[in-house]
């Protein structure tokens, strides 16, 4: 069953002549992990905001076509209802701290307070989520006194604790150092393996190739490719639109020129696939 359904969706930001999204058709199944890739300004964030209801509620502008997310039309429901079904985590970890709480524990409970959850249940849910996101040791620290990676896991926990049906992530690691990114990816991976529906804009192609079910490539607000990571990331069209391809694909392309890759064998997008390919040449 599709939990996200976009039909012929076109969106203009207020006072903008060119559409930020144009004729988007997309269906995402329950439990699927969809990755969004694209160059700067391709419309990745715009698509994330549309799925989570911030377009049109927060950004206004003109939206045409139909949207159905988790059984509701986000353009008709109010934003408070949307965010209960769709959780949004974005780039800058610092800006996602509510600012009104003095400890990590209270920060994570902020969303539950706003939902009117009973304090007893609140504690149970916060305890559980800080364990799953591995931040239990940070519980009494100030959210501002943390590293970027820790803050981003607090941001993730703060959204996950609200038990959204769909998790939307807009380049959650692009402002983190390698270690911070790794910690965040680890949590996302576990969520994906547990069967949560995830939509994630991200640049780290090799990681996506490993864990995403499908990849959507955007350019100038339009879908240029939609398919499995294997289909999308080995495509020769992507670089033309400024989208990075997998390092393993790049190596294999070069290897093909040097006769180190079998003619006609499909291009690898993950480490395993490329090792497999090289095994055939070098026994």
């Amino acid at each position: 069953m599709a939990v996200i359904e976009l039909k012929n969706l076109t969106y203009h930001y207020p006072l903008s002549e060119t559409p930020a999204l144009q004729s988007i058709d997309l269906e995402v199944e329950e439990g699927e992990f969809l990755a969004i890739v694209g160059a700067n300004g391709a419309g990745k964030s715009t698509l994330c905001y549309t799925i989570s209801g911030f377009i049109p509620h927060f950004f206004k502008g003109e939206l045409a076509g139909s949207v159905n997310v988790a059984g509701m039309d986000p353009t008709k429901a109010n934003l408070g209802t949307c965010v209960q079904k769709v959780g949004l985590v974005f780039q800058n970890p610092f800006n996602q701290i509510s600012g009104s709480k003095f400890t990590v524990y209270e920060e994570i409970a902020f969303g539950l307070e706003n939902l009117g959850v009973d304090p007893q249940e609140m504690r149970e849910r916060v305890d559980e989520i800080i364990r799953r996101t591995r931040i239990a040791d940070l519980r009494d620290r100030s959210p501002y006194a943390l590293s970027g990676g820790q803050q981003q896991r607090v941001a993730l926990a703060s959204i996950l604790v609200m038990k959204p049906q769909i998790l939307v992530l807009d380049e959650p690691t692009s402002q983190l150092d390698p270690i911070g990114s790794q910690e965040v990816f680890q949590v996302i991976k576990e969520m994906a393996l547990q069967g949560m529906t995830i939509v994630m804009a991200e640049h780290k192609v090799e990681w996506l190739a490993e864990y995403a079910d499908r990849v959507l490539a955007l350019s100038a607000g339009q879908i240029i490719k939609l398919g499995t990571p294997q289909e999308v990331f080995s495509s020769s069209e992507l670089p033309k639109h400024g989208v990075g391809i997998s390092r393993y694909t790049q190596v294999a392309r070069r290897a093909l020129q040097e006769n180190l890759w079998l003619e006609g064998r499909r291009m690898p997008v993950t480490l395993d696939e490329s090792i497999e390919g090289f095994r055939e040449i070098i026994p």
Partner: peptide, 15 residues
């Protein structure tokens, strides 16, 4: 956006 995403403006009684 971040505090909206945490349902701050949801019109229910907060706890």
């Amino acid at each position: 956006i971040a505090i909206e995403a945490r349902a701050f403006t949801l019109p229910v009684e907060k706890t």
